[in-house]
Structures are given as structure tokens and as C-alpha cells.
Amino acid sequence: MTSCHIAEEHIQKVAIFGGTHGNELTGVFLVKHWLENGAEIQRTGLEVKPFITNPRAVKKCTRYIDCDLNRIFDLENLGKKMSEDLPYEVRRAQEINHLFGPKDSEDSYDIIFDLHNTTSNMGCTLILEDSRNNFLIQMFHYIKTSLAPLPCYVYLIEHPSLKYATTRSIAKYPVGIEVGPQPQGVLRADILDQMRKMIKHALDFIHHFNEGKEFPPCAIEVYKIIEKVDYPRDENGEIAAIIHPNLQDQDWKPLHPGDPMFLTLDGKTIPLGGDCTVYPVFVNEAAYYEKKEAFAKTTKLTLNAKSIRCCLH
């Protein structure tokens, strides 16, 4: 018999989150649709729960009410004593943790798909938090293969000092899905179709896995975050240069030392320094102006996964 890495157990509980950011409308629209008619997301033997994560922000069509829901799922915020004085999103995070967690427990949901849009030209993107997770690498390989020839990129946010504390991190297997470009507060049919297909293929993978299909060893190309880059700023902290036209919409493309990065209003080009080629992502993302992030630098690498098969009882 072929030796293989056996994944822990079959997958039982899956959640699909929309509206973690209330103005990213593809996930909101799909989740609302699936709450009314969820036939397309159901798979035999699998509990799939669509869920609106930040209903107040969705109602106002804004990213958040008090603070970013997708950055506060750490033990400090989840452990705060519940009171009306807490920011709305912290209270909501505790409610979500109660419903789908608790985080880092045996009772937490197996998989959470968190649906997002970006204003950046990132196409279909899967966000991975753990480079050693054979199950998710296999799932992402399946999704990428199923979507081809449509490109699907994998963004690895594993980093020693950049801690995200994402909404989906309460699950055993957290999956971020990011599709763009799409303006905030807008629905685009092409973007919706791409996100819908990503979810379909992900659920198909889980179904095949649960039925005992063995997935042979595989490898995927990923883009691992190195650092986030702020806009150049003046002495008052105001933005002093904008994304250069040569960099705009060039997510995932190589940016070499000396290539144009920013452009000042008086026409001066600010190039990339250093001696390493990087791959920019979230270029000129609207939501990241407040976070002082013009783009993120990534490096390209390959992740390998062992063969996996479900432990059938």
C-alpha cells in the first residue's frame, strides 16, 4: 500500500463567511444568496454554514464600524470581559468565536472560507496562513488546477512579526479568498463568478477527501510576504508620492531593483532599492491607505505537500 500522510479526520463542519468587511460585496451577495438557497454549497455528509460576519458594517456598506474585524481574533480580544464599552467588532468577534470556535479547541469548525474583495488587480487569490499544512496545500492545488487556465495565486502570510489574527483563524483550516479588482461597494459579475467557482472547487475537494480519495504528493507556487511598504510621506505625515503608473495593476509581476515604484507630484520617480527582485501584491489597495500600506513585497517559492487521505471509520 502506498505510504501517505493521513489527515486527522474527515471534514464535518464548514463555514463560509461574507461581510467580514461590509463594503466587499461579492461575499456579502453570495452568502445572502446561499442563506436563501444553499443547494449549490451542500455536499453529502458535510455541514456547510453561510454566515454574515459583520452585519452592521454590511448594512452601512462600510469596511467596519469601530475597528477591523479581520485583525482582532487574538486571545487578548477574544478574552476581554464582555461589555457595551467594547468596540462593536470586538464584541462581534467574541460572538463569532462562540459560534464557530472556540479558537484553538477541538470544537472549532474544521474549515472557514472568508470571502473578500480587493481594489487591487490580484485576480483569484487564496490566502494561506501555514506553509506546513498538507491538507490546505492539497486543497489549493486542486482549486488552482480546477480553475486553469484562469490564474489563481496563493498568498502566504506566515511571518515572524506580522500577526494578522484573522476572522477565519478560529477554524482548524483557515482559508482566505480574495478576488479583484473590484471597487468597494460595487458588485461585478465576473468577480462574483470567479469567487463562486473557487468555493465550488473547494467544496468538491472536501467531498472527494471525505469519500476516501487519496491525493498524491503535489507542489504549489506561493508568494510569501516579506514586508509592507508605506507611501513616501512629508514631515507632516502626508502622502508625498503615489503608486507609479508602471507599478499600478502589476500585482504578482516581478519588481526589480531600480524599477519605478512611486511618483511625486513634481514628476520624480522613486525606484525600488535593494538588490532583490520582489513580487508586489495589494498594490494601491483602497482599504490600506489608513493602514499606511502602499503594497506588500513578496518572494516566490514552492511548497510541497505529502499525499493525504481521509481516515475512514
Rank of each mutant, 00 (worst) to 15 (best):
K80C: 13
F282E: 12
A171F: 01
H313V: 15
F205S: 06
L128D: 06
K228C: 08
E293N: 10
Y164N: 15
T44F: 08
T302Q: 09
D266T: 09
E76K: 12
S146P: 05
Q248P: 03
C276G: 10
V179P: 04
D74L: 10
D266R: 06
T118I: 04
I11V: 10
V31T: 14
D114A: 01
Q138Y: 03
C4F: 11
M195N: 01
E89N: 03
C4D: 15
G27Y: 03
G237F: 01
C124T: 06
Y164M: 14
E290L: 08
I157S: 15
G176C: 15
L136G: 02
T53C: 12
A294R: 05
F215S: 03
T264M: 08
I225H: 15
C310Q: 10
L272A: 10
D114C: 01
P174D: 06
C276W: 07
G273Q: 13
F29L: 10
K80Y: 12
P232N: 03
A294M: 03
T269F: 03
E221R: 00
D249V: 00
H21C: 12
R196E: 03
E129R: 07
I157P: 15
M261R: 06
G22M: 09
R233W: 03
G123R: 05
Y142S: 02
R63T: 11
W34K: 03
C218Q: 00
P260C: 01
T2M: 10
K300R: 11
I52R: 00
C61F: 10
V90R: 08
V281Q: 05
R43L: 00
D74G: 12
Y64S: 11
T299D: 07
E178V: 15
H10P: 15
C67E: 12
V283I: 15
G273E: 15
V175K: 03
Y288P: 09
I127D: 01
S120K: 05
V48W: 03
Q94G: 11
S169R: 11
Y88L: 08
T269R: 00
D204V: 02
K163G: 12
R233F: 06
Y164F: 13
A305M: 05
T264P: 02
C4Q: 15
V229G: 05
L147N: 05
K81S: 13
I177R: 02
P271K: 11
H116P: 06
L25T: 15
E40G: 03
K213Y: 13
E36Y: 07
T264K: 08
H207I: 11
E211D: 12
I16C: 02
K228N: 10
E84C: 13
L301W: 08
V48P: 06
T44W: 07
G274D: 08
L69Q: 06
I65M: 11
P245N: 01
D230M: 14
A15D: 06
E47C: 11
K213W: 12
M198S: 08
I170Q: 05
V14W: 05
L86C: 12
G212A: 03
E211S: 14
S161C: 11
P217W: 00
T269L: 07
S105D: 12
N284V: 02
T264Y: 04
S131V: 07
I72L: 14
V222A: 14
Q248E: 08
N54K: 02
F209V: 07
L46A: 01
D266A: 08
T26C: 09
F100T: 05
N284M: 03
K144Y: 00
D275H: 09
V154H: 06
G123M: 01
R132H: 14
Q248I: 10
K200R: 11
G237M: 03
N121P: 02
L263I: 10
F113E: 01
K49C: 11
D266C: 07
K60Y: 11
I177V: 09
I239L: 09
E40S: 00
K172Y: 00
E293W: 10
V186H: 05
Y88C: 08
V28P: 15
K172H: 07
I127R: 15
T166R: 11
A286Y: 08
D249I: 04
F113A: 05
F209S: 04
I6H: 15
A171L: 04
V222M: 02
N70C: 06
L272Q: 06
K197S: 13
K13V: 00
G273Y: 07
F135H: 00
K103Q: 11
K224D: 00
H159D: 15
P149A: 02
H10W: 07
C218D: 05
Y88H: 10
N117R: 03
G38I: 11
E47S: 11
R71W: 09
M198Q: 03
I72S: 14
H98T: 14
T26W: 00
E76M: 12
L147P: 00
E76L: 11
H141S: 08
I112R: 04
N133I: 01
F140A: 11
V222G: 04
L35P: 01
F209A: 02
K13H: 06
P181L: 01
L25I: 10
E227C: 05
G79Q: 14
P257M: 02
L136P: 04
L162W: 12
N210Y: 01
L126I: 03
F51D: 01
N97L: 09
R71F: 10
I137K: 06
H208C: 12
Y279T: 00
Q250M: 11
C67S: 11
A15N: 06
E36I: 07
A287L: 09
V175S: 05
Y173A: 07
E106P: 14
H201Y: 13
K163V: 09
Q182H: 05
V186M: 11
Q42C: 10
F51Y: 13
L86W: 10
D114I: 02
S83H: 13
Q194Y: 12
P254E: 10
T53W: 01
L86V: 13
L156P: 05
P245E: 01
L156D: 00
G273R: 10
L301G: 06
T298I: 00
A202D: 06
T53Q: 02
N37V: 04
I41K: 06
V154T: 06
V90L: 13
L75C: 13
E290N: 12
E40K: 06
G27P: 09
P183L: 05
K172D: 01
N134W: 08
L301Q: 10
L263Q: 10
G267R: 05
S146H: 15
D107A: 12
G27A: 08
E178P: 02
T277V: 13
Y279R: 04
L265Q: 08
L187M: 13
A15S: 01
A305K: 01
E227H: 03
T299C: 12
L86Q: 12
L150M: 13
G79V: 13
I112L: 08
K32W: 00
C311Y: 10
L126T: 04
S146W: 08
R92D: 06
S161T: 13
I177G: 02
E129W: 07
K268Y: 07
P151W: 05
G185H: 01
E84V: 14
L128A: 02
G273L: 09
H5M: 13
N236P: 04
Y164L: 14
V58H: 06
R71E: 14
P160L: 07
Y223C: 00
A57Q: 05
G267S: 06
I239N: 00
Y64V: 07
I308V: 11
L78I: 12
K144V: 14
H159T: 14
E214N: 08
H208N: 12
Q12H: 07
A296C: 14
I143V: 09
P216L: 06
R233G: 00
V175T: 02
N37W: 05
K60M: 12
K59P: 05
T299H: 11
I170N: 06
E238Q: 12
N54G: 02
F17L: 09
R233S: 07
F29K: 15
G101C: 07
F282S: 10
V283W: 05
I170W: 08
R168I: 06
T62W: 10
D234C: 07
V28S: 15
K163R: 13
T20C: 12
Y288H: 15
K200A: 10
P257W: 02
M82S: 14
F140C: 13
E235G: 10
H159G: 13
N284D: 03
K60W: 09
K297S: 09
C67L: 12
K103C: 10
T298F: 05
K163W: 08
T118V: 11
W252A: 00
S307A: 15
I16A: 04
E40Q: 00
K81W: 12
E106K: 13
M82R: 13
N121G: 03
N210H: 06
W34R: 03
E24S: 06
P151S: 08
T299F: 09
L312S: 15
Q250K: 13
K172N: 06
C124V: 07
K200G: 13
Y155C: 15
K224V: 02
L187S: 08
Y142C: 02
I220K: 02
K172S: 06
L75Y: 13
Y231S: 05
I112D: 05
N304H: 14
L128H: 05
K253L: 08
H256P: 01
E84S: 14
